[in-house]
Amino acid sequence: MKTETRWVKRIFWSSAALIGLLASYGAAGLIGGAIPSNRSWRAPARGVHIFVESNGVHTGIVVPKVAAGVDWRGVARAADLRDPRYAGFDHLAFGWGEKSFYLETPTWADVKLRTVVTAAVGSDRTLMHVEHLPLPRSGDGAREIVVTPEQYRRLAAYIRASFRAGGARYRGYAGYDAFYEANGRYDAVRTCNSWTGDALRFAGVRVGAWTPFPVTMMGWF
């Protein structure tokens, strides 16, 4: 009986510690997402129109293929797609994330505990996800942002630096997207959503100081 009691106590305290850790992480993420950076930023009356999008798991940044002297057609090529016809669309969505998490979890329904734990602990296997899209419509899944040409070029430089030079390419979920090997380490602190926030923060856009969750990104726009 004493042995069984000890095991019950261990399970209880281990479970309590895990719940406490997850609760603390969630609270820290929400607090970090609520602290503004680039406080003085205001959207210009005219400029480059970009979007922040979310599918409930990942967030990404949607940009025009050609704008403000930036041309993405040499980075996201028609030959990388299952169906090259989608390269005729005039916008691209960029996202960054852990390789297994990205390839195995297009929606929350596909999330596996093993994948989550592996990503949270840390992984150097990261990818850029690129989708060829028409002009998005601002709504629940996308928020429109206007930035100056200079801010957009800074954003583009951050996105370009996330691609691993000479890295491998992978077919995407459908005919209109592809994955590319990326730079950077993924973990519980630097998630796909914090990458989105980092990119916008680097460009000078007002966003949370740390944005690990979709809500901490989308709530700003």
Rank of each mutant, 00 (worst) to 15 (best):
residue 63 V to W: 00
residue 186 Y to S: 09
residue 133 L to H: 10
residue 100 S to L: 13
residue 156 A to P: 07
residue 131 E to Y: 07
residue 109 A to I: 07
residue 60 G to F: 09
residue 118 T to C: 12
residue 105 T to N: 07
residue 121 V to M: 15
residue 141 G to Y: 03
residue 115 T to L: 05
residue 118 T to D: 15
residue 77 R to P: 15
residue 162 S to M: 11
residue 54 S to A: 09
residue 105 T to Q: 05
residue 87 A to D: 08
residue 55 N to F: 03
residue 127 L to K: 04
residue 164 R to T: 06
residue 129 H to M: 08
residue 134 P to R: 10
residue 79 A to N: 12
residue 105 T to S: 14
residue 65 K to I: 05
residue 152 Y to W: 07
residue 172 G to L: 11
residue 49 H to W: 07
residue 162 S to W: 06
residue 175 G to S: 05
residue 111 V to M: 11
residue 93 A to W: 01
residue 176 Y to K: 03
residue 87 A to Y: 02
residue 99 K to P: 08
residue 110 D to M: 04
residue 129 H to F: 07
residue 146 V to D: 00
residue 126 T to H: 02
residue 179 F to L: 10
residue 183 N to Q: 14
residue 109 A to Q: 14
residue 127 L to S: 04
residue 152 Y to T: 00
residue 171 R to Q: 14
residue 113 L to P: 07
residue 52 V to M: 04
residue 76 A to K: 01
residue 141 G to T: 08
residue 146 V to A: 10
residue 173 Y to A: 05
residue 70 V to L: 09
residue 52 V to N: 01
residue 169 R to A: 15
residue 163 F to R: 06
residue 63 V to K: 01
residue 108 W to S: 14
residue 152 Y to R: 01
residue 177 D to V: 05
residue 154 R to A: 13
residue 103 L to V: 13
residue 60 G to M: 04
residue 53 E to H: 05
residue 187 D to I: 11
residue 57 V to P: 04
residue 70 V to W: 06
residue 148 T to A: 10
residue 123 S to N: 10
residue 169 R to V: 13
residue 54 S to L: 02
residue 183 N to C: 11
residue 77 R to D: 13
residue 149 P to N: 12
residue 93 A to K: 13
residue 168 A to N: 14
residue 137 R to L: 09
residue 149 P to D: 11
residue 94 F to G: 02
residue 127 L to H: 02
residue 79 A to K: 15
residue 136 P to H: 00
residue 139 G to F: 05
residue 75 V to D: 15
residue 59 T to Y: 03
residue 91 H to V: 02
residue 121 V to G: 11
residue 55 N to I: 01
residue 189 V to P: 12
residue 77 R to Q: 15
residue 51 F to V: 00
residue 75 V to H: 09
residue 170 Y to H: 10
residue 166 G to S: 06
residue 71 D to R: 10
residue 97 G to Y: 01
residue 174 A to V: 10
